[in-house]
Design a protein around this nucleic acid. Sequence first.
DNA 1: GTCTATAGAAGGATAGAC
DNA 2: GTCTATCCTTCTATAGAC
Lengths: 203, 203
Amino acid sequence: MSENEKLTEEIIFEAATVVFEEDGLSGARMQNIADRAGINKALLHYYFRTKDHLFEAVFTKLAQKMFMKFTPIFEKNLSLEDKIRFFFREHITFMQQNPKLPGFIINEINHNPQRIKKLLRNVDFRKLWTTIIEQHSEELYKYNITEETLPQIMTTIVSLSVFPFAAKGIIEVAFDNFGIDFDKYTEERKTFAAEFVIKAITK
Amino acid sequence: MSENEKLTEEIIFEAATVVFEEDGLSGARMQNIADRAGINKALLHYYFRTKDHLFEAVFTKLAQKMFMKFTPIFEKNLSLEDKIRFFFREHITFMQQNPKLPGFIINEINHNPQRIKKLLRNVDFRKLWTTIIEQHSEELYKYNITEETLPQIMTTIVSLSVFPFAAKGIIEVAFDNFGIDFDKYTEERKTFAAEFVIKAITK
DNA sequence: GTCTATAGAAGGATAGAC
DNA sequence: GTCTATCCTTCTATAGAC
């Protein structure tokens, strides 16, 4: 694979990323991707054979990028409260840089749940949870967290972080009426969401 | 308009609702809608002229259905805490019956923000908020709610309610690993989310 | 490896019979 | 009001020259 070939493939991939994120699989047009990459439509097929192949490559890369952002939680040597603060700060910062990613991934998975099954089949969620429990066993008595409330709390944390970006289109319009700026809102959300959760789970 | 015409139009509308909710505007096929309605493709055009017209009708109806669920909050004569409980109970119940609606609306608005502007242009958000403030002025000293934290709290409440349904595809797969049932989870969420918010905002 | 030209399929829309 | 047949555009994909 020559230097030049590598380059072209990457240019196509990046153009495809933008177009798929914007329009989704069914709404995206190969012509649009070719135009954005500054090359011919036929070249797309030369490098990626079909639209589905190209989409699959883009989706896998983006989904991994998104989900990888969750893993530092299981590694960091921080108190539970600082982990919550760390998560919201890092995750929201990431989405500020990729605001269309949450909506894109959620939508494509809803349209084709198989995609996520394939992607997450190697992830042992239970083991991750055991890790968390063991890391924080000594401080857990302080919080309203049990085996039963865990799913609620986990989804709550993700909801608070991801939803504003997934529903960006609606929220921006609603905020218009209050004269609120979306970027300022997401910046404030990093600390608001963290303290909100900590307050709620502290006994 | 005869009785029969009314009926056909409704059958088409309902078929279109199912297909658009499932596949989105760009993914939906007129043939698919016709098949589901048990009629011919040409009839779709007879009643709704174009695919866009048909979609517009369906989207408007569904979006109104969704947003109407927020309004009782401003009417009910309940304490603030009971309003929060009422909201989660009613709103989640509604989405249990329409689980694909949140993802559909969010996605279509992200693809075309104009849609929601048109729909919400008559809603005076500021007036609604003033109403809330006035209704609960005497009890507000109990809570960590100010003009500045209001947008955060409002979006937090909606996030906790809507996100699990918008991201249903992902959450169900993640829950598989824990042996958790999505329906049981959403049922529990009605009270969990309410108490979580109340705990967090109470001084 | 990259282009032009075009095949071939799919899907939205319409004409016209009944 | 409903159907069959078909038009016409759009889009994915490929053939073939360079």
